[in-house]
């Protein structure tokens, strides 16, 4: 295998050679070498090659603007003093910058505490989820057993059944958790798991966390794509399947693990439906953001009724605060998000 650099070099050389050949042909007269159709084809390609990049740029620029517009707006609003929201002369750049909005929102959301809380919840749940989903995915990818297709159909069902259907029964299950001694053990003597992190950890521990079905599916596809010889060699050496999985398959699946882990973090971070059903005090960033306008009205306007327009600067500041951690992660690990899912072979 040539390295990437070498490949680039080859590409360059090939293109140069092609160009030189074309030039020589042109000196002699093109119609000696090529049929009229080929000449027309080449001409058309050349023309498209000249115009298309321009169109492509326009399309991509416009669409990037559409995507980035809310973010630009967020940046522009979050640092602007509230009075300047109604100033018609301010469009993008406010006349003065202020950090006051950020400080206010930080206090209202008690952001430091919330973030630590959320990060712990997310990371623990995601790690548990990645481990158990990978084991399950491997089981589905590499073993033949009775009822496999039915069981896998259940995985697919888990993907398409909205969590809303099962939330209320689940709530009751957590609230009256059986066996009781286990609930007491987990929560220091209470019988209800509601409001404790276990409502997140327990499903994740049993490969049933947020979007677990999808992750099992991704892992299954990935492990199916790995060559069978890897394991056969390990089996011949007398490894047990579990040992083979840990020592042989996992190192090969690193990128896939990372991708699933990142997605899991993102989805847990953004989730407010599940957490709002099972938490009433245990606050996450998404929950805080969801209730931000109510909280803002209470703390900043003494519980008066305020329209969204009046508090938009704080709302946008809150948005900015809560997406910043995930955005920073995305900027640094962007490669793994995009390449990971490509390599994990979601195809087929």
């Amino acid at each position: 295998m040539a390295t990437k650099k070498e490949e680039k070099q080859f590409e360059k050389e090939r293109k140069a050679a092609q160009k030189a050949r074309y030039k020589r042909m042109k000196e002699v007269g093109l119609d000696k070498y090529l049929t009229p159709e080929q000449i027309a084809y080449n001409r058309r390609r050349k023309w498209i090659g000249a115009v298309w990049p321009f169109f492509r740029f326009v399309i991509l620029f416009g669409l990037c603007f559409v995507i980035l517009y809310p973010l630009i707006f967020m940046l522009s609003t979050a640092f602007r003093p509230n009075e300047q929201m109604n100033d018609p002369s301010v469009v993008w750049l406010p006349k003065s910058f202020t950090m006051q909005n950020i400080y206010d929102v930080w206090d209202v959301m008690s952001f430091d505490k919330t973030v630590v809380n959320t990060v712990i919840l997310n990371i623990v749940a995601s790690i548990l989820q990645v481990i158990t989903c990978s084991i399950t995915g491997y089981g589905f990818a590499r073993f033949k057993f009775k009822g496999k297709s039915i069981l896998f159909a259940i995985v697919v069902l888990q993907i398409i059944v909205p969590p809303q259907i099962t939330t209320i029964p689940l709530y009751l299950q957590y609230a009256y958790f059986k066996p009781e001694f286990l609930a007491k053990l987990l929560t220091n003597g209470e019988t209800s798991l509601i409001n404790s992190g276990w409502t997140m950890y327990l499903p994740a521990l049993f490969a049933n966390g947020l979007r677990a079905g999808l992750f099992i599916f991704i892992f299954r596809q990935f492990f199916r794509g790995l060559p069978k010889e890897l394991e056969d060699a390990a089996y011949l050496d007398g490894c047990s399947p579990l040992y083979t999985f840990v020592k042989i398959m996992c190192p090969n699946a690193k990128s896939s693990f990372l991708t699933v882990f990142l997605f899991s973090i993102v989805w847990y971070w953004n989730d407010y439906y599940v957490s709002s059903s099972f938490f009433t005090k245990n606050d996450t960033v998404a929950l805080m953001l969801k209730n931000l306008n109510t909280n803002l009205a209470q703390t900043l306007f003494d519980g008066q009724q305020v329209s969204v327009r009046q508090i938009i600067v704080w709302l946008e500041a809150g948005c900015l605060l809560s997406i910043t951690p995930i955005l920073i992660m995305y900027i640094f690990l962007q490669r793994y998000f995009i390449e990971g899912i490509e390599r994990s072979g979601l195809a087929n």
Partner: peptide, 28 residues
């Protein structure tokens, strides 16, 4: 025997699915 290992691998998920998915699903 390999098949049995397959059950072993999906056992965690199966347990969880019964408790966290199928029971609430039927309940609803």
């Amino acid at each position: 025997r390999k098949g049995l290992y397959g059950y072993g691998f999906i056992a965690i998920w199966a347990l969880g699915t019964i408790y966290f998915f199928i029971l609430p699903f039927i309940e609803s």
